[in-house]
């Protein structure tokens, strides 16, 4: 009976295109897009001091 070649966990991950797709979309979306938009959304706004504008 031929010996079954053991496939490493790493190869299983590399062969799983859907998992790679998920990681490839989620990681930059969270670290770059969502974090960046949150920084813009919560950036403190500047208010002019009271009194006539010079």
């Amino acid at each position: 009976m031929p010996e079954e070649k053991k496939i490493s966990g790493w190869q299983v991950l590399m062969d799983d295109i859907s998992m790679l797709f998920l990681l490839g979309v989620v990681i930059p979306t969270v670290l770059y897009v969502i974090w960046g938009v949150m920084e813009y959304a919560f950036a403190p706004t500047f208010s002019l001091p009271p009194g006539p504008t010079p």
Binding site: W10, L13, M14, L20, I27, P28, L31, Y32, E39, Y40
Partner: peptide, 26 residues
């Protein structure tokens, strides 16, 4: 293949370098 895997996960983050002189981002 592992190198391509690193590309998949992290290469898009390089977009940040266009924003290095932008004031608002921390």
């Amino acid at each position: 293949r592992s190198a391509f895997f690193l590309y998949i996960l992290f290469i898009n983050l390089a977009s940040e370098h266009h924003l290095l002189t932008d004031p608002t981002l921390s």
